[in-house]
């Protein structure tokens, strides 16, 4: 629950055999490092390991996942910024690397890295306990209007996207709810299950077990379109609440990557997203494929950073 104190940094290098790959040596390196600040078994770690498994044969490269934990991604960003821009090392990006850069003064920030591609959005969902009276977000809005500050919404960490979107929710809908922050998604689920909070914000992957068991129920998604996995769950947009969260997952590298390397990745990732086995995995995870080439990924990161910066400034959340 409280991972705040745990900054275990370690390198779990999976042993790989490099013989088979050398045959297809289009890519300038036979071994490529993928760095994540997530711990082994964590979200981005599992994602990168799956990616290595399926992208390896496509690009003719051996991927090695390295967990560089600590400082909310500050360590990993420093490693990347100090690495050669030759295509031998990349970083699995999530919004937290931008947030860490904005909230502290790390040695290297997200602006010292260059996005390569974007692959997915993690859909942000609103959920309730199975026996809750709420059927969709409109119900929540109505209840919040009749009982200001009485509806309790559980979100994960203070600088998370969940938090930001709920602050926006209040402005957009003209309501006042109580927003309860936690140390991570797991605590949010517990506090929705035990009735401390009436509404929770989270991601599909961590909710799956509870949804399948009928303990929790999705009521709305903050996505552009309804999710394939849950076609009956309305989006916020459909209900007239214009909130869409783009929690991205992509890759970034050191600045100044050669063009052929970027092209190899853009092509490789597009093939990967079409790969049936990989597709089966990510569809089961409930993520939305959202391929963007380097230009698109750069624009996405910049836009996201601007939004977060505005949010942090508005609420006076800043580095000392």
């Amino acid at each position: 629950m409280k991972y705040r104190h745990f900054l275990g940094a370690l390198v779990a290098v999976s042993a790989t055999v490099s013989l088979a790959a050398e045959a297809l040596a289009d890519y300038p390196h036979s071994t490529v490092k993928l760095v994540t600040h997530s711990s082994p078994g964590g979200g981005t770690d599992v994602f990168l390991r799956k990616l290595s498994q399926h992208l390896g044969p496509i690009m003719g490269v051996n991927f090695v996942v390295e967990n560089v934990r600590g400082g909310g991604g500050a360590k990993a960003m420093a490693v990347l910024a100090n690495s050669p821009a030759d295509g031998s090392i990349f970083y699995g990006t999530t919004p937290s690397y931008v947030n860490t850069s904005l909230l502290s003064s790390p040695e290297a920030s997200f602006t010292d890295l260059d996005p390569v591609v974007n692959m997915f959005y993690d859909p942000q969902v609103v959920y309730v306990r199975a026996n809750s009276p709420y059927q969709d977000l409109t119900d929540v809005v109505e209840d919040a209007k009749s009982r200001p500050q009485q509806v309790i919404v559980a979100v994960s960490t203070p600088s998370s996207l969940d938090r930001q979107v709920m602050e926006q929710f209040q402005t957009v809908t003209g309501t006042e709810v109580t927003i309860l922050t936690h140390d991570g998604g797991g605590d949010v689920i517990l506090n929705v299950l035990n009735g401390t909070a009436q509404v929770g914000i989270g991601e599909i992957a961590e909710l799956r077990g509870q949804i399948d068991a009928g303990e929790l129920r999705l009521i709305t998604t903050y996505t552009d379109e309804r999710l394939d996995l849950f076609p009956d769950v309305k989006t916020a947009k459909e209900q007239g609440i214009d909130l869409v969260v783009r929690k991205f997952r992509g890759l970034a590298g050191p600045k100044g990557l050669p063009e052929d390397v970027v092209t190899a990745w853009e092509e490789g990732i597009q093939k990967l997203l079409a790969d049936p086995e990989f597709k089966a995995w990510y569809e089961g995870e409930g993520v939305i494929p959202a391929y963007l080439d380097q230009e698109g990924a750069r624009a996405l990161t910049a836009e996201f950073a601007t939004e977060m910066k505005a949010f942090f400034t508005e609420y006076n959340i800043q580095a000392e």
Partner: peptide
């Protein structure tokens, strides 16, 4: 990092102290 608001406390801008 403050557990509720998310502001940083007594870190002196040092990312190693954020957590």
């Amino acid at each position: 990092t403050d557990p509720l608001s998310g502001v940083t406390r007594f870190t002196f801008g040092e990312p190693e102290l954020l957590e």
